[in-house]
Computed example of a mutant assay.
Amino acid sequence: MGVRTSSWALSAAVFIQMAGVGLIVAFLPGRMMELSGSIRFVGYLASVFAVPFVLFQLPLGHLADRHGCKAFIVAGYLLSGLAGLLFFRAAGAWGLLAGRLLQGFGEIPTWALAPALLSLLFPLSKGGAIGIYNASMHLGLTAGSLLSLTLALSGDGREAFLLYAALSLAAALIAALLVRDPLSARGGSAESGSWSDLFRALRSLRRPALQAGIILYGGGYGTFLTVIPAALLGQGASGQERVSLFFTLFYVAVSLSQIVAGKISDRRGRDVTLLAGLILVTAGLALFPAFGGTGALAFLALAAFGLGMFCVSALARLQEALPLSLRGSASGLFYLLWGVGYFLMPPLLGWVGTALGQTTIFPLTALLFAVEAAALRLTSAGRD
């Protein structure tokens, strides 16, 4: 199996599984509100998902550097299938949170190790390769969101969780049969070094503005998946159909931005797309509360486009900042930082919205992204 076959297999597998994710995330916030009666528990859906990302990204990335990524990717899809079964059987808020925790474990390899493998397979065009993979991921989420528009019309949508489990198992089969991992094919490698070598490399990575931006990106991503849909539901706009449309636009915008920004950053440098992404997020979040209906969704899509631009550029930049033998660890570090933001920011914004009103959430978030853009520009943290 060649590198092109492996690349397309990784993209196909993630598209299939993420179609299931896009389907269930459209139902999870409303289902949690129904079972718990509190927007605070909706924020916990993001926090619980992020716990494995914070605790296990670096250990798993380091193990992948030594033994290869493929086995962990396949195992992740299998765990996600089990999470779907837990969602289906959940009778209360804690059952949903348990499934979300297992889903977090399952998606670590999907988010972090597949890009690490692609950076090894395509060393000279990693931005474009990662961008196509991430676009496939978000196009799958888009397909799932569109499917949720149909399923939302019948029952409580619990059948969506069973479909998610089946799609995850199909993705595991594709990855197992068609993906080639050069490292695992050689029976592993000790070139990644010891844990002390890894931590020495991480201590040498002095890019605080970039690292802060990745944390903020994770928080922004979690906010788009939890707090913003809950706020749209709270406005009584159009119920579940409006939330499903929002998710569709979000995933389409992130998909397109991954392809565009990945290729541009390979040719023009990472700084251009890093800063452009932050500026778009700031503008979209600052302006959308002033508009209703289609206008609000359009500005949210603009912010989502900016999130995707920042993501692919920052991930490629972090891959370049660490040695080739630590590509799995670099992806692990990215999603560890991402998980910190994803864990902290949505519930904090939920508390702010409860205490001060939902209208304060989005100007505050826009301000955070504006400050990050200024810090990244002033410190030139994204430059070699």
Rank of each mutant, 00 (worst) to 15 (best):
G339A: 07
I108Q: 09
F291H: 08
F246G: 00
P59T: 11
A261Q: 01
P229N: 05
G306S: 08
A290Q: 13
L356F: 15
A374F: 15
L146M: 03
R317L: 14
A286N: 13
F87P: 06
L96I: 08
G76A: 06
A381N: 05
F53R: 02
G262W: 00
L101C: 01
I259A: 00
S380C: 09
D266W: 05
A304H: 08
A143V: 11
L249I: 00
L23Q: 03
M137S: 11
A373C: 13
A114W: 06
S80F: 12
S255L: 05
L285Q: 03
T294L: 05
S145F: 02
A98I: 03
Q240L: 14
A91D: 10
Q235D: 07
A116V: 12
Y164C: 08
P208L: 04
A373P: 06
L78M: 11
T223C: 07
T360K: 09
M309K: 01
A71V: 11
L178I: 06
G20I: 09
A12L: 15
V54Y: 11
T142L: 12
G99D: 13
V14M: 08
T282G: 06
K126C: 11
S238P: 09
T365N: 02
G22W: 02
E107N: 13
A13L: 05
G84A: 02
D156Q: 14
P59I: 09
G350W: 12
L102P: 08
S189Y: 00
E191L: 13
G61S: 07
I259V: 10
L216C: 03
R383Y: 04
A253H: 05
G277C: 12
P346F: 08
W8A: 05
G236E: 01
S7N: 01
A321N: 04
Q17E: 04
L322H: 06
R377M: 06
F334Q: 12
G306D: 03
S184A: 15
G293E: 05
Y44P: 08
T360F: 13
A83T: 13
L178A: 14
N134A: 15
P182V: 07
P346W: 03
A26M: 02
C311I: 07
R200T: 03
A190E: 02
A172K: 06
L153T: 15
V179M: 01
S238G: 15
R270V: 09
S238R: 15
L275Q: 10
F41I: 12
A91I: 11
P363V: 03
V21A: 12
A64M: 11
L177I: 05
L333M: 14
S119P: 04
S7F: 07
L344A: 14
S244A: 13
L162S: 04
